[in-house]
């Protein structure tokens, strides 16, 4: 596809991103929040004021204060430090899960959409089977069967998300299979695989970007949910889901901050990803340029 020889230039891409962000303040806000989340994931562990695992029974269950912004939990650990440090794990799980489901779903969907026939029929039945399960229960089952580890949470989350990508790509590829530009690409000497990969598939990217952003939110919720019910990440590892689960016991006794702050961060992350969808689509769609 577009190669360095083409005079289109990366500067046009940058200008387009700036334009999209400036045109839509909500998108700009979501990108700023996303930057903050990524930054917490990257440098969070080095800048937090306390060791997220260090217990201090003398200062257990303290309300938020200047020393402990989000208070401390039942073991005297600093909730703020734990919330920030947990970002890396939660983001890793969701990004890895979404990346896996994106790649597998895109490949399966593209093949089914382009060649159709029995491949298409077979894939659709498999996807139907996956979708027929309540997805969270399916993820629980996968983690329970494969064993309790971060990798398995990633695989479980990826598997339940594959059908969404495969369906979007299949539909987008299918409507372009006979398009003039696909035929023209074949006249230019491209094999079917090249036509699909370099000419048709990139056109499916804009709707996929919306799917990615929604999915990132779901993936984080899913990972936190699994941890919440005791599958997946184990204490004392800082992770939003476990922290909410642990803090839930203390809400009745008035120690609301232990569950509230990780829950708030979880919500913020999901909110950010959901808002980013439209902006991402506009960035990858050349038709939005003027």
């Amino acid at each position: 596809m577009s190669s360095p020889a083409s005079p289109s230039a990366a500067s046009g891409q940058v200008a387009h991103i700036v334009y999209v962000l400036r045109e839509n303040p909500v998108t700009a806000l979501s990108f700023a929040l996303f930057g903050f989340i990524v930054l917490s994931a990257l440098i969070g562990p080095y800048v937090v004021p306390y060791d997220p695992l260090a217990t201090n029974s003398a200062r257990a269950l303290e309300a938020p204060s200047a020393a402990h912004w989000f208070g401390t939990d039942q073991l005297g650990r600093d909730v703020f430090s734990r919330v920030i440090v947990a970002t890396r794990l939660d983001l890793t799980i969701s990004v890895a899960a979404v990346a896996i489901s994106f790649v597998i779903g895109a490949f399966l969907g593209a093949v089914a959409g382009y060649w159709g026939g029995w491949i298409d029929a077979l894939l659709n039945r498999i996807l139907d089977t996956i979708m027929a399960f309540p997805l969270f229960i399916l993820a629980m089952g996968i983690v329970a069967a494969l064993g309790n580890s971060v990798e398995n949470i990633i695989y479980a989350t990826a598997i339940i998300n594959i059908p969404f990508y495969a369906r979007v790509v299949r539909a987008e590829v299918n409507i372009r299979r006979e398009a003039g530009f696909a035929l023209a690409a074949r006249l230019a000497g491209n094999s079917h695989a090249r036509v699909l990969a370099f000419h048709i598939f990139p056109n499916a990217l804009p709707p996929m970007m919306v799917q990615v952003s929604l999915n990132m939110g779901w993936a984080i919720l899913n990972a936190a949910g699994l941890s919440f019910i005791g599958l997946g990440v184990r204490p004392p590892t800082p992770e939003w889901g476990i922290m909410v689960a642990e803090g839930a016991n203390f809400i009745v006794s008035g120690h609301w901050w232990i569950a509230l702050f990780p829950g708030l961060w979880l919500m913020l992350a999901v909110f950010t990803f959901n808002l980013m969808g439209d902006g991402l689509r506009d960035i990858v769609d050349p038709r939005r340029r003027t």
């Binding site: 596809m1 577009s2 083409s6 690409a185 230019a188 491209n190 056109n203």
Partner: peptide
């Protein structure tokens, strides 16, 4: 309209057969 890939600019559209063949 249908025969030009919306994601390729005019240069890439014309260059495609030259690159491939």
């Amino acid at each position: 309209t249908d025969s030009l890939n919306p994601r390729h600019n005019a240069f890439d559209a014309i260059a495609e057969p030259l690159r491939r063949l």
